[in-house]
Amino acid sequence: MATEEVTGESGGLVFHPMDQFIVEPLFGTGSVGMFTITNVTLWMALAVLCILALMVLGTSKRAVIPSRSQSVAELAYGFIYKMVEDVTGKEGIKYFPYIFTLFLYIVFANFLGLIPTAFTTTSHFAVTVVLALAVFLAVTILGFVLNGTKFLYLFWPTSAPLAIRPVLMIIELISYFVRPVSHSIRLAGNLMAGHAVIKVFAGFAALVAVSPLAVLGIVAMYGLEILVAFIQAYVFTILTCVYLKDALHPHH
């Protein structure tokens, strides 16, 4: 039966690797509106519950000899705290809670998406664009609040020769406003591509002739996606720290 579904009536391959990214109502059928509870809503809520379970329930005892959940929570806290401090300096520590929350949400959403039949919320540009725009707007507003018009020195490299500063200013402006685009596409694109490739291998696994190779491909890609799930959360977070550093120290 599985082979018939994959090969179709004409004998050609008929699986659709992008169907796993379709947003659907969680209850009933019909179109998806602004207030419709969807599969995206469910898996976003589960990511938030996982964060609460780890950081609240997992650390509630505060034991001298930590449990596994407390150890993971403390390692995650120390890892991101050190990142914020190293990249932004002591001035950036006050913004640690926001950056830590970003990291936890992205890493949990990424790993939950690896569960079979789950929905990877961070593979959708609608989600990653909101996260990237929130960082972009927060950093830009913070830059002007803390530095006033001196924040514009970020686009005026005073260390460069005066003759080429206007050209460099244009390049800096373009690169600055492209930040939310690259920030969001990098996360969603990597996750979407990896999950699509796994689905393609899963489709080939239904064919007896190539199923052993397809299964090996699934195992290899799944292992790679576990690595990618963490790396992409790390990259998104450290780029947020870099952008925050520009707001705190806009001078070239």
Rank of each mutant, 00 (worst) to 15 (best):
V219G: 14
Y105K: 07
V242Q: 06
L131Y: 11
L162T: 09
T3F: 07
L154F: 00
E225D: 13
V72C: 03
T140Q: 10
G113P: 03
A188V: 08
G11W: 02
S211H: 03
L187F: 04
A220H: 06
G33N: 02
K199C: 01
L187M: 07
S31A: 04
P212T: 03
V72R: 05
V139M: 10
V145L: 15
S31K: 09
G113Y: 12
L104E: 13
G223T: 07
G189S: 14
Y234S: 03
I115V: 12
T240A: 15
M169Y: 02
G30E: 04
S175T: 07
L26H: 13
V208W: 15
G12M: 15
I65L: 14
G89M: 02
T3H: 11
P25L: 08
G194R: 07
A233Q: 00
L248C: 02
R62W: 09
S71E: 01
Y105R: 04
F103P: 06
D86E: 08
T122A: 09
G12I: 11
G28E: 01
F136P: 00
D19K: 15
V197T: 08
A160F: 10
Y243N: 04
A47N: 09
L227P: 05
M44K: 06
V208P: 06
T59E: 05
V130K: 15
G8C: 01
M83V: 09
M18R: 11
F100S: 11
N190Y: 12
M44V: 15
A196D: 04
L162V: 15
V72D: 11
L131F: 02
K245L: 03
S10P: 00
M34A: 05
M192C: 08
G8Y: 01
I174P: 00
S211R: 09
D246C: 14
V208M: 10
V242P: 05
I80L: 04
F108I: 01
G33P: 05
I65D: 12
G189E: 03
Y77W: 10
N39V: 00
L173F: 08
L42T: 10
F100E: 09
A63E: 13
Q20F: 07
V139G: 03
S182R: 13
A134C: 12
E172M: 14
S10M: 10
A188F: 10
A206D: 09
V127G: 08
A118G: 03
Y98N: 11
E85T: 13
V181Y: 08
I141L: 13
P212I: 02
C50G: 07
T120E: 14
Q232L: 06
K94D: 11
A160M: 05
T140L: 14
L244C: 03
G113L: 04
L187W: 03
A76W: 06
L142T: 00
R62T: 10
A53R: 11
F144V: 00
V48W: 07
F155Y: 08
S71T: 09
M221K: 08
G92M: 10
Y105V: 10
H251T: 11
L162S: 15
S182F: 05
L13Q: 15
T38L: 03
L152P: 01
V23A: 09
S184V: 12
L46W: 02
G78D: 01
V208F: 05
W156L: 12
L13E: 00
V219C: 06
F236K: 00
W156V: 13
H251P: 01
A63L: 12
A188I: 06
A160D: 02
A247Y: 02
P97S: 04
G189L: 09
Y222D: 11
